[in-house]
Amino acid sequence: MKKSIGIAIILLAIVIATAILSPNFLSAYNLENLLRRTALFGILSIGVGFVILTAGIDLSIGGVVCLAGILTPYLLTQMGWTPTETIGAILLMSLAIGILQGSLVAYGRIQPFLVTLCGLLIFRGVARGITMDQTQGFQGKFAGIRWIGNGRIPLPGVDGFAIPAPVLSLVIIAVLAMVFLNRTVWGRWMKAVGRSPNAARYSGVPVARLQILAYTICSLLAGFGGLLFVCDVGSAQPSDFGNFYELYAIAAAVLGGYRLSGGEGSVVGVVIGAAVMQVLRNAIVLVPWLPDTAEFAVIGLVILIGVLSDELLRRFAASRARTQAKGV
């Protein structure tokens, strides 16, 4: 929790600045949009956080989002599957993707960057092949299943503001992730694998199985995320659905305090990191004098500042700890 304070301050600063610069920022409508987008991207980021925790990387998230995103309407409309069958199939497929990629990393000893980069290309290619590059949409039907992506949960006594449905998914996933990482043996061991794979191995921690587990959780959440995305957006185009989402997810995780060298990170931080990204994109549209073309530059700059200040804080803390250590 302590580690998330820095990023929380950054989020607060951006929120306050945007609220001052744009009177519409704090409108119920806009806040709902922000919550929904943060939830959607946050789920992907929590997933990649597990992989980063083990000092790995998953670049295939965009591909999995795409595959899940186009398969959901495809299975429902083209193949005539029921929503339950469709969701089950998507989750099973994501699970299989994760186990496969994780095994290649853990047992095949292939670098995760390579495995998941190939995954990214393959999954998008498969998505385009299945659909022959046709856009897949719900065709105005399936409002029931789409609720998980674009639904609103009214608050009793509050008018004009409702909780976007994906927030529910995010909260459940975040709580489960936190419990897993902080309260279970496997969560503790997963951190150990990232901290020092050697020490973990020499302690009898099943390193390979934990790595596979991390990739499996990541792909599962990416697949579920893709499902939510398409339910929100209504249609998906195989050639660009989910483009760059792996990078947004990784950026949010890094902003939230995950170290790419592994072993460190908090779920709360990741969710706040995802929120920072979404508020920034929103602010660029809402603040009149910010040119939309500057979007990527601003996001890149903020990530850099976030990571840099985090690193400086870390060094400061480390040097203080060292001088104190000398005293003992």
Binding site: N24, F25, Y29, N33, L40, F229, V233, A236, N243, L286
Partner: peptide
């Protein structure tokens, strides 16, 4: 009003409309 682009990202295209509605009541 100013014109927003999405680089063919559908989620972004939707977000653009939402944000313009927020910004311009």
């Amino acid at each position: 009003l100013n014109t927003l682009t999405d680089q063919f990202d559908r989620a972004k295209a939707k977000a653009n409309v939402e944000d313009m509605i927020s910004a311009n009541p």
